[in-house]
């Protein structure tokens, strides 16, 4: 669409800008202020310069949490993206079945995040949980409070359960926007199923998939409530992710300075990743427009 150059559009943006600035800019400034001081209260505080940043960057527990976070995010992406595409491909497209499946698939997304944790806690407990009990009956010594492997596997399974629907629904909507004529043409060419997927469906999915991967990466990067309820970050610290480390430090220990420095480092990682994705999305839209023109 050809957009008109008009700076009066700023007036339409203004209310939103003020509101978001209130809930984003002022807090962010405060975080920056905290990060260079040792704050006891508003009147008792000491300037520390870059001390907290140095401490946080060299803290082995936090370094481990960052690596764990990346490992977790990449793992869930590697599972959820192909699975989501697969589910989108087999979802019925017409009739009451389509609506029913759509609602059922969406369901996990609508559950408060700590309830998701509770659901899986109940589901996986060895004594009262169907999954935990079944695995034990089958002779596997399943125990998420003692075995880090079990805890990790369960959290990943929970995340797959919780968020694969997002990818599936995104892809489903991408697939629905492909005109029937494309499929008919493919049928005339006797194109194999794989060829249809590779040359018709996948190109159409790329756009929605970039959005999906971005959203998924970001949400998995700030995961908090689900593992907190399910494992509490344990056993040990094997499932303690960044948000939980941060929340423990900020709320639990009231260490304003260090947690603010940590917040800023966390935020910078997010900023870089978001920027890379955003640039990719924008360049893709530009290419699309050039092809249409």
């Amino acid at each position: 669409m050809n957009k008109v150059y008009n700076n009066r559009a700023w007036w339409l943006i203004l209310p939103m800008l003020l509101l978001v600035a209130f809930s984003a800019v002022i807090p962010l400034m405060t975080v920056v202020n905290y990060s260079v001081q040792d704050v006891f209260d508003a009147n008792t505080r000491f300037f520390t310069g870059t001390e907290w940043f140095k401490e946080m960057l060299n803290d082995p527990a936090l370094q481990a949490a960052v690596l764990r976070q990346f490992a977790f995010s990449l793992t869930v992406l590697a599972i959820e993206v192909p699975l989501g595409i697969g589910i989108a491909l087999i979802m019925p497209k017409k009739g009451w079945q389509a609506s029913a499946v759509l609602i059922l698939v969406t369901m996990p997304l609508l559950i408060p995040w700590n309830v998701v944790g509770s659901i899986w806690q109940i589901f996986t407990r060895g004594d009262i949980g169907l999954m935990g009990w079944s695995l034990r009956e089958l002779g596997y010594g399943y125990n998420i409070t003692a075995s880090p492997v079990d805890a990790w596997a369960t959290i990943i399974l929970m995340d797959v359960w919780h968020w694969t629907p997002l990818i599936a629904l995104l892809c489903f909507s991408g697939l629905r926007s492909i005109p029937d004529a494309y499929y008919q043409a493919a049928r005339i060419d006797r194109a194999s199923k794989w060829a249809v997927f590779r040359y018709i469906q996948l190109p159409k999915l790329t756009n929605v998939l970039v959005i999906g991967v971005l959203l998924r990466f970001m949400h998995s990067f700030m995961i908090y409530a689900e593992p907190f309820v399910l494992t509490g970050g344990g056993p040990g610290s094997s499932t303690t992710f960044l948000s939980q480390s941060l929340t423990t430090m900020a709320i639990g220990q009231q260490d304003l300075g260090p947690s603010a420095a940590f917040s800023l480092i966390y935020f910078l990682i997010i900023l870089l990743v978001t920027w890379v994705f955003y640039t990719a999305i924008m360049n893709m839209q530009k290419d699309d427009n050039n092809q249409e023109a």
Partner: peptide, 17 residues
């Protein structure tokens, strides 16, 4: 883009302020 970064920002970062 700035709007987008707010969508992506972890709530934990803003908790204290």
């Amino acid at each position: 883009f700035w709007l987008l970064t707010n969508l992506m920002a972890p709530p934990a970062v803003f908790l204290l302020p």
